[in-house]
Each structure stands twice: as C-alpha cells, then as structure tokens.
C-alpha cells in the first residue's frame, strides 16, 4: 500500500492540536481498522474523501468498538464500557457529524448512543457517496471498467431493514455504466449474510447450510459479475460464499466505495 503515502489522514488529536475542527469524523470501526479486506474499503473511502477535498478526521487509536456485537450477544456490561468510553471521547472533541462504512457502527452510533448521552448526526458512507454524486462533487467516468457488467446489490440488514436505507446505495450503483440486477430477496426482504447478532464471532449452530451459502446461491441466480455490499461483515461472508462455490474467478465482491474508486481510477 505504497500509495497510502499520498493520502491525507489526520486524527481528531491532530485537528485539535491545530485548533481546527474537521467537517466530519470518519468512524473506521474494528473491521475497517484491522480486517485486511475491510482495510481496503477504508482506504478506498479515504481516497474519495481526499479526491473531493472533504476535511475529515479519524479517531485513530482513540476509537473503540461501538459495542454492537457485545450488546447483541447480550453482554450489556461490555457494551456500556466501550460505548461510554467512545462517547466520552466524541464529546470531548465536540464531534457533531460522523460517517462510517460499517452499518453496525452506523446503527449503534445513530440509534443507541443517544440514550447514553451521545448525540451525533450519523450517516453511512453510501449516503455520503450519494450526496457527493448528487452535488456533482463526484463525477462518474463513463465507459469505465464496469461498462456492460452485471452488478447485484446485497442489502445489509442494519442499513436496509433496520434503518430503511435502500435507495442511496442503489442510486450510487446506477451511476456506474453497468446493469444493476436485483436478487429475489431484496430491500425489505433482503436475506441476511449470516454475520449479524454476533454470529460473526462464533461457529454456526447446527443446521443444513451456512447462511452466506444460501445468500450467495441466490446471488448466483442472477449471474452477476460483481456482488456489491455496504458492510465489512457482509463483505467477508459474501467473499467466503463465492470461494465456497469456487467462483472467485468469475464473481467479485466489492464495497461501493471500491467500485467508485475503480471506476474513476482514483
């Protein structure tokens, strides 16, 4: 990742030291920070932010897990510890606006932190990307690498069904010079990838099939070249599903930010 040198990524501490405030905080999340595949999404998103000149910051080492998986597993103590710590940090820096590429972080920051004293304007990166396209700040190159490709979009539960964001990601995908094909179960009926509710961190319960296999089989029915996702955990699950079907040569799984970066050659 040598091109990282060219990227400008400041922390809240950097801004604070300069006596400045960023426009927006990019909440990276555990997956975006540590998972090798999701790191690429973080980099892609940062490239876009740099490209359009958005003055953003990350918390860096001051960021902790939002606590979503702990809370959904039932461990309210661990959730409260990490959440209250985060809120302390966010409030100390007087953060007002947050963008994140993880729908679980998005949901917890947006819907659960207020009851704990953390009130922020939280958006998901696909919403920001749509805004930037609408405002003409991102101009999609025509006849890009996706020309003539079939893309299917997998709704994550926590962006879609839980928070009702179905259109923004689709609007972004429609800007690519490609064909957007819907799976049978989409939008409100979208099928989970199998990672939510802290399933990501445990073995499956006994059953006939893994959930990501069920989902990838459904995706395969529409013969996509690309499965587009908006969540680092869906990204893992769908990628594993594609591998299990030995289709990794034919089907790529990408986050929306990566698709924009590739299309525009950023």
């Amino acid at each position: 990742m040598s091109d990282l040198k060219k990227l400008k990524i400041d922390t809240m501490a950097d801004f604070s030291a300069r006596g400045e405030e960023p426009e927006i905080l990019f909440w990276v999340g555990c997956a975006g920070s540590f998972d090798a595949r999701a790191q690429k999404v973080s980099v892609a998103f940062v490239k876009i932010l740099n490209e359009v000149g958005i003055n953003f910051a990350i918390l860096g080492n001051e960021e902790s897990c939002t606590g979503d998986p702990a809370r959904r597993a039932g461990n309210e103590f661990v959730f409260q510890m990490t959440a209250l710590q985060n809120i302390e940090t966010l409030n100390m820096y007087k953060v007002k606006k947050i963008v994140t590429a993880c729908p679980h972080c998005f949901n917890t920051l947006k819907n659960e932190y207020p009851a704990l004293g953390g009130n922020y304007d939280v958006i998901h990166h696909t919403q920001l990307l749509q805004e930037l396209i609408n405002d003409g700040r991102i101009k999609m190159k025509e006849g890009g690498v996706f020309k003539g490709k079939r893309i299917t979009y997998h709704d994550s539960c926590y962006l879609g069904r839980v928070n009702g964001v179905y259109e923004a990601p689709r609007k972004v995908l429609e800007q690519l010079d490609s064909e957007l094909v819907e799976m049978k179960r989409c939008k409100t009926n979208g099928l989970c990838c199998g990672a939510g509710g802290a399933q990501m961190f445990k073995e499956d319960e006994p059953g006939d099939k893994r959930i990501n296999i069920e989902r990838i089989e459904e995706a395969m029915e529409v013969n996509p070249d690309i499965v587009a996702v908006n969540c680092p955990f869906c990204l893992t699950m769908m990628t594993d599903g594609v591998k299990a079907k030995e289709k990794q040569e034919d089907v790529m799984v990408y986050d929306l930010a990566e698709l924009i970066v590739q299309n525009n050659g950023i």
Binding site: L4, L7, I9, T11, V28, C30, A31, G32, S33, F34, Q39, S42, V43, V46, I58, G60, N61, E63, S64, C65, G67, P69, A70, V78, M81, T82, Q85, M200, F201
Partner: peptide, 18 residues
C-alpha cells in the same frame, strides 16, 4: 473489546492501516 477496544485481540495499533 473490554481490554483492547476491538472485537479481535490485536497487537497492532488501530491506525496502522493509515
């Protein structure tokens, strides 16, 4: 999460990716 603030036990810094 309790000890390291991340869902995985990591030895790296959180901002290493940058």
């Amino acid at each position: 999460i309790e000890n390291g603030g991340a869902v995985w036990q990591m030895s790296d810094d959180r901002d290493k990716w940058t």
